[in-house]
Amino acid sequence: MTLLNMFLDTAAANSAANYLPIGIQIFFAIGFVATMLVLSNFMGPKRKTSDKLETFASGIETHGDARQPMAIKYFLVAILFVLFDVEVIFFYPYAVNFKELGWAGFGEIVLFVAFFLAGFVYIIKKGALNWED
């Protein structure tokens, strides 16, 4: 339970107003991007031909739709990322409170890392990250 005390203590002093500048910046950025897009749209010439509107394939004709099933590897990487990234998230609150938790917490995190590594070794040994095939 001590794990998140830290969060709350600061959260008490930290209200939603702290994030307000970020909101402002988002509006600013959106405004900037939108303006630029609209402006460049007006500025450029518009002489469209059917060849120009084709997708580019190094000069040869394009064949079919690009959206075909891709190598499963990429998908696998995405899934593994999701899994491991979420595990990484667990390290953050631990890292912040690491000193208060002391050796007991360290022992538990070692266990956690052990599980992490078990999964990691497993995916490597199973060839999920083999690209040379």
Binding site: A118, Y122, K126
Partner: peptide, 10 residues
């Protein structure tokens, strides 16, 4: 479970 998982390639 973890051991079994590791067994799969050991």
């Amino acid at each position: 479970g973890v051991v079994m998982m590791l067994c799969s390639f050991l």
